[in-house]
């Protein structure tokens, strides 16, 4: 097929079943016109773009990368590849990756067929959360009183201590809410993974592997839960996503 061309490289988005090869319309990360194509090897195929060797623009790259994966998950099962993965050539892709990992990747695709990831994130109203902490914890209230209005240098360690205590209280709240969310939604999913909240006001971040046919049922449960915790915690509900949290990572240590 395509001969390897000097000066070009192959950007890899994800791995899909070869039997369900899809046409991807999203432009991808490359310069205009390149588009996204499939490189088939046995039962699996990689979604790729041909790119110039050398750094790509990160902004377009990230959007392009996500655009392709989002479209792919709407059409088939896709194992997402880490953002920014560029291989030297199609030959290298086929021989060193698709060929070398074929059975393992094919097995994963089979296992995940017909399933998608749905993600639920909870966020606290920070002011409300912190007021609760101050009311509950005399130590926090006392330290907070102590540092107020004093110069920074004089209270540096007190402020760290104060923040540390608060962080501990917030952590406890997170534990409780994660248990609530998982307890309610996990029974409707095939698997669940808890991820660390990524922002300071983040309460819960949980990923669920759900059969496509049960998305509606799952959605109703999320909706009920959202109503229940309203005011205290705001839920966001995302998906269907590629099964990021359920894709086995290669055991490769990279510096």
């Amino acid at each position: 097929m395509t001969a390897d061309q000097p000066g070009t490289a192959v950007y890899v988005y994800g791995i899909v079943p070869a039997a369900e090869t899809i046409e991807v319309e999203s432009p991808g990360v490359g310069e205009a016109g390149g588009g996204v194509r499939s490189v088939v090897q046995g039962a699996i195929a990689a979604l790729v773009s041909d790119v110039e060797a050398g750094p790509l623009a990160a902004a377009r790259g990230l959007r392009g990368h996500w655009g392709v994966l989002e479209e792919a998950v709407s059409k088939t099962t896709v194992l997402p590849v880490r953002f920014g993965t560029v291989l030297e050539s199609e030959t290298v892709l086929v021989e060193e990756y698709l060929g070398a990992r074929h059975d393992q990747l094919a097995a994963q695709l089979e296992e995940l067929a017909g399933k998608v990831q749905l993600t639920v994130k909870g966020f606290y109203d920070e002011e409300r959360l912190l007021r609760g902490v101050v009311e509950r914890s005399p130590a926090v209230a006392r330290l907070s009183q102590g540092v107020r209005g004093k110069p920074e240098a004089a209270t540096y360690y007190d402020r760290i201590r104060l923040g540390e205590l608060v962080a501990g209280e917030v952590e406890q709240a997170r534990e409780g809410d994660a248990a609530l969310v998982l307890g309610r939604l996990e029974p409707l999913a095939l698997a669940a993974r808890r991820e660390p909240p990524s922002t300071r006001d983040g309460a819960v971040h949980a990923a669920f592997l759900v059969e496509r046919g049960r998305i509606d049922e799952f959605s109703r449960a999320v909706s009920e839960l959202a109503a229940e915790v309203e005011g205290r915690m705001q839920l966001r509900y995302l998906g269907p996503l590629p099964p990021y949290s359920f894709t086995e990572e290669e055991s490769v240590a990279w510096a």
Binding site: A9, V12, G14, I15, V29, A53, P55, L56, A57, A58, G61, L62, H65, W66, L79, P80, V81, R82, F83, G84, T85, V86, L87, E88, V92, L93, E96, Y97, T119, E195, S198, L241, Y244, S245, T247, E249, E250, V252, W254
Partner: peptide, 20 residues
């Protein structure tokens, strides 16, 4: 976060680069 932190990692020796 998932885009940046997760996904299959292809072995370093066949990989050219991470973007940017």
């Amino acid at each position: 976060d998932v885009i940046l932190d997760k996904g299959l990692v292809i072995d370093a020796y066949v990989r050219v680069s991470l973007i940017g």
